[in-house]
Amino acid sequence: MAKIIGGYFTSHVPGIGGAIVRGDQETPYWKPFFDGFPPIRAWLAKERPDVAVVFSNDHGLNFFLDKMPTFAVGAAPQYDNADEGWGLPVYKSFEGHPALSWHLIDALVRDEFDITTCQKMLVDHAVSIPFELVWPGVEAWPVKLVPISINTVQYPLPSPKRCLALGRAVHRALMSWGGDERILICGTGGLSHQLDGPRAGFMNPEYDLFCLDNLAANPEALTGHSAEEVAELAGTQGVEILNWIAARGAMGDTPMTEVSRNYHIPISNTAAASLLLQAG
């Protein structure tokens, strides 16, 4: 039977990619952020996941406003990154797990989550940077990828409550999968930040810490807000916390142990965090 080994959560700010290219990890600006990752790398080296189910949001690489799915599940044999237009390197491709993807798709739709299925899907920095952070310098990613994309771009966004429910449906689907893989759940993005408008530069440590403090033991606490209220609290791009909420749901209802946590301000315009939870 497949096993969910834990949940890895991190910010995915594009600037992190630039810092990695320049080798800035030990500089005073970047070190407090990168210091969050050695414990996560060590844990992954010990736990050796085979598959990562990654909840993230597209930033205008794969999806445009012509078709904007609220929830989309990748079902491709391979996922490529591509030029995102703002100068990031093009990251290496990811091997998919189509059989598991189709199992999830089937189970989710039976469970009345009417997701969009993508047999072709580009994945952007929201997947590549979290992988670069925990597996730096590898020739090929050591895990297969099942990407799940949540619309955090165009309102109406799904509510935090709905994202947690989606994650829980993903959990049920993973529990009924017949394989014996070791599965890592990832949620990427956030935490509080706002790029646009006169409130550009807004961050909210109080809300971020509320999220970090409740994610492991009481994720329902994060579902008391509408998506619009989250935008008010976390900034217009801080709604990426929806990816974390869904990922937490996919870990299941059992209590989680916080293995490591790091919270730092600022990385680029963002309050950045990394968090590792394990079951039990």
Binding site: N262, Y263, I265
Partner: peptide, 21 residues
């Protein structure tokens, strides 16, 4: 603008930055 971003770190309570089991 950059200085304004950096200053927001002052709002992080003591002890809330790093935690390791």
């Amino acid at each position: 603008f950059k200085a304004m971003l950096v200053r927001q770190a002052e709002a992080i309570p003591q002890g809330a930055r790093v935690r390791e089991a």
